[in-house]
Amino acid sequence: MDLSTIILPEHVFVGLPAPTKWRALQMLSSKAASCFGIDEATVLRALEGREKLGTTGIGNGVAVPHAAIAGMTRPRGLMVRFAHAVDFEAIDDVPTEWAFVLLFGEAGRSDYLNVLAAIARRLRTEGVLKAMRQAKTAAELYSVFMSEAIV
């Protein structure tokens, strides 16, 4: 799975201020709506609905809010580093530093699982999280996350 076709450099944001998980979802919905030309309220309802089923905080400072959005033809994503860690009620109770927002069409639920697996593999690569913490700009964060040369 080529994540660079799903998360584009212009869809990476650093320093997003979000005091709570629910405010984070609002801000992420706004960014997604702007980036993908879709209705913000629709995105927010979908992300909140998914979050009510159980946390998307996967641990290690990472959350992957995701939802199916009617009319989307392929998976799209955002990568965000929050200004301050947010309590996403993650499975390991570690506050969330990064969110990977994934939106996909109703028929693309299996695509989502492949994208999630690719993100998880990338985050498990030695040195990636450390390098992501050191990135100062969105461009650096994107480069670090997409790079194959991390050690």
Rank of each mutant, 00 (worst) to 15 (best):
V101Y: 08
R121M: 03
P75T: 03
D87N: 12
Y112P: 00
T56S: 03
Q134C: 09
M79S: 04
Q26D: 15
S143K: 11
L25F: 04
G54M: 03
V101D: 04
H11R: 14
F100Y: 13
A135R: 11
R74Q: 13
A149E: 12
L103Y: 02
A24P: 04
G108D: 11
L47G: 03
T96Y: 06
A107R: 12
R76Q: 15
M27R: 15
L28E: 14
F145M: 05
N114P: 00
G127L: 00
L123I: 06
T73G: 11
L47F: 06
D111Y: 11
I58V: 13
I69T: 07
E10G: 13
A107E: 14
I38S: 01
S29V: 01
E148L: 12
E140S: 12
G77L: 02
G15Q: 07
T73E: 15
V14I: 10
D2V: 02
I119D: 04
H66I: 00
E89I: 00
K130M: 06
T96V: 14
K21T: 02
A24Q: 05
A32S: 12
D2N: 15
S110M: 14
R121F: 03
K136C: 09
R133S: 11
F82I: 01
A24K: 06
N60C: 10
S147L: 02
D87Q: 02
A118C: 05
V12W: 03
L113E: 10
E97T: 15
V62S: 09
H11Q: 14
N60Y: 12
M72W: 02
L141W: 09
R81M: 03
M27P: 01
P17T: 06
D39K: 11
L103P: 00
A68E: 07
W22Q: 14
E126P: 07
I91V: 14
S34R: 11
E10F: 10
V12A: 04
A41T: 12
M27E: 15
A118I: 02
A67E: 07
F100H: 11
E51V: 05
H11S: 13
S30Y: 02
A67F: 07
Y142I: 05
L28I: 08
R121N: 09
S110A: 14
D92T: 04
A33G: 12
P75E: 04
T42C: 12
P65I: 03
A131S: 09
A135S: 13
V86R: 04
F104Q: 01
A70H: 10
F100P: 08
E89A: 13
A85N: 11
